[in-house]
């Protein structure tokens, strides 16, 4: 598994797609999209990403919550031959945390997402996960948002420990943070 982290507008998506495409060689490519579209700006973002992926041969699966379900959709035998790119963790964590009537605890969200990623990581031949650096604006937000940021931090830490390789994308340039096998 490769973990790719960057800020907004850092070029992390393009970088992740290149990595996933290179890893998959001729095998099947899946794009697991976690963003929920609920306005024009979101729609424009999705369209921009779709244009970027068009020629790279990704099959898109929209899975805003419960990413482990991707395994049921694709099936283990096909997954073991395929590469998946999951984008992105910030939307997944927000969707898991804030979809219900009341926000879920960060422990519950963290546990569920790490288990889901574990299943995908074991199931797919290659897995690339895109996550976000939401940690450096120095603003103290309300309690719910701080809990979200904390959940993102814990999840990133666990994903990085699981990952064979961690890259930080800075102005479009991948900088190696963890170099595994």
């Amino acid at each position: 598994m490769i973990l790719i982290i960057g800020g907004s507008g850092s070029g992390k998506s393009a970088c992740a797609e290149e990595y996933a495409a290179a890893l998959s060689e001729d095998s099947r490519r899946y794009y697991i999209a976690t963003m929920r579209v609920n306005n024009n700006e979101g729609q424009a973002k999705v369209e921009r990403h779709k244009r970027m992926r068009r020629d790279k041969g990704f099959n898109t699966i929209e899975q805003p919550v419960a990413i482990e379900k991707v395994m049921d959709i694709i099936g283990l035998s096909r997954a073991t031959e395929s590469t998946a790119l999951l984008e992105c963790m910030s939307n997944l964590v927000a969707n898991e945390m804030f979809s219900g009537a009341a926000p879920k605890s960060r422990e519950e969200v963290t546990e569920k997402i790490i288990q889901g990623i574990n299943q995908l990581s074991k199931g797919f031949k290659n897995l690339v996960v895109v996550t976000n650096n939401v940690f450096e604006d120095g603003i103290i937000y309300d309690e719910t948002t701080m809990s979200y940021i904390k959940a993102m931090g814990i999840i990133n830490e666990k994903l990085a420990a699981m990952a064979d390789k961690v890259l930080e994308v800075v102005v479009g340039i991948p900088v190696v943070v963890k170099e595994g096998k």
Binding site: G7, S8, G11
Partner: peptide, 23 residues
């Protein structure tokens, strides 16, 4: 770009466009 995506649309656009220009 290394923060919570701002609620304010202008701030959001500024961060996103600055990031893309730097790339």
């Amino acid at each position: 770009g290394n923060g919570i995506v701002p609620v304010d649309a202008f701030e959001r656009e500024y961060r996103e466009r600055t990031g893309r220009i730097l790339v």
